[in-house]
Simulated scan of single mutants.
Amino acid sequence: MYSSLIVETSDRISTITINRPDKLNALNKTVIEELGKAIDEVINDPEIASAIITGSGPKAFVAGADISEFNSLDAAGGKALAQKGQDLVFSRIENSPKPIVAAVNGFALGGGCELAMSCHFRVASESAKFGQPEVNLGLIPGYGGTQRLVQLIGKGRAMELLMTGNMIDAATALQFGLVNHVVKAEELIDKARSILSLINTKAPLAIAGCIKAANAVYNEAENGYSIEIETFGNLIASADAKEGASAFLEKRKASFKGQ
């Protein structure tokens, strides 16, 4: 089904592994298109509650974009490339109603850093490194990196990383708030799965509501407080909310159905 990805699902968690280790899992047209299909599967398959995105091999999560595809592009082609990536993958991940976590197992540079940042949060191995080195190519990030890096670590730190092209290690990424957890490489997927396993016990509609309302903080076209109020109102009438309240009052574990 996929030529550049390995997709496996167990316990309602889909693990999407970018599988180009000889190219340090660099993003090319095929990877972008297949990631788009895999994300659609996560969103639309009722048997999948959440997902992990990671890279194949010990060296890289995604070490960037495939630069060989850049040389033939003019301005219109460059805009189309960036827009396609945003539409198919990066914005789809960010706005997925199901949680998608990046398990960063090595270099997350350029498009790889952008891919990790589009996920709802990030877990990193001790060897992970992050950076947006596009200025070294005479470019800027094109898959949302200038926006999400500022959102996640603040304008001053983001400006320095964007303009120097420098990398930061996992410990610094944790300090900056770019990642939530740093663990040993052999514990990385288990850590991501343990967090998602807990999230998967919660009410699916409420999880989707958290994602929608939190994303509205950064959308100038939306009023986040209004979205929160509307979502709260819709959820309080749901079967899951009734079940949650009943379970709390009866001192038992809730059984959520996503309804």
Rank of each mutant, 00 (worst) to 15 (best):
S4T: 12
L5P: 04
E8H: 03
R12I: 05
S14E: 09
S14H: 03
I16F: 00
T17D: 03
D22W: 06
D22S: 11
K23W: 01
K23Q: 15
V31R: 04
I32Y: 02
L35A: 07
G36H: 02
G36I: 07
V42S: 06
V42T: 10
D45R: 08
D45V: 09
D45Q: 06
I48T: 12
I48C: 13
A49W: 01
A51I: 02
A51V: 09
I52D: 01
I53S: 02
G57Y: 01
G57C: 11
K59E: 08
A63Q: 10
I67H: 07
E69Q: 15
F70Q: 05
F70S: 09
N71S: 12
N71E: 15
N71M: 12
G77K: 12
G78R: 10
K79Y: 14
A80H: 09
A82K: 10
Q83R: 10
K84C: 09
D87M: 07
D87A: 13
V89N: 05
E94S: 07
S96R: 02
K98I: 08
V104K: 07
L109P: 02
A116S: 11
M117N: 01
S118M: 05
H120G: 05
H120K: 12
F121K: 05
R122N: 14
V123F: 01
E126P: 02
S127Y: 02
K129M: 09
K129N: 07
F130I: 03
N136L: 15
N136D: 06
L139D: 00
P141N: 04
G142V: 08
G144I: 08
G145W: 09
V150W: 04
I153W: 04
I153Q: 05
G154V: 06
R157W: 03
E160M: 05
M163A: 01
M167L: 07
A170F: 03
A171R: 07
T172P: 05
A173R: 06
L174M: 11
L174H: 06
Q175L: 14
G177K: 06
V179L: 07
N180P: 02
N180Y: 14
N180A: 10
H181K: 12
V182A: 04
A185Y: 03
E186D: 07
E187P: 00
L188N: 00
I189A: 00
D190F: 05
D190G: 03
S194W: 01
L198F: 13
K202T: 03
K202A: 09
A203C: 14
P204L: 14
G209P: 06
C210D: 04
I211G: 02
K212W: 00
A213H: 01
A214N: 10
A216D: 05
V217R: 11
E220T: 13
N223M: 11
S226K: 14
S226A: 10
E228L: 11
T231Y: 11
T231A: 08
T231R: 14
F232Q: 06
L235T: 00
A241H: 13
E243H: 08
F248E: 13
K251Q: 13
R252S: 15
R252E: 11
S255F: 12
F256V: 14
K257F: 13
Q259G: 12
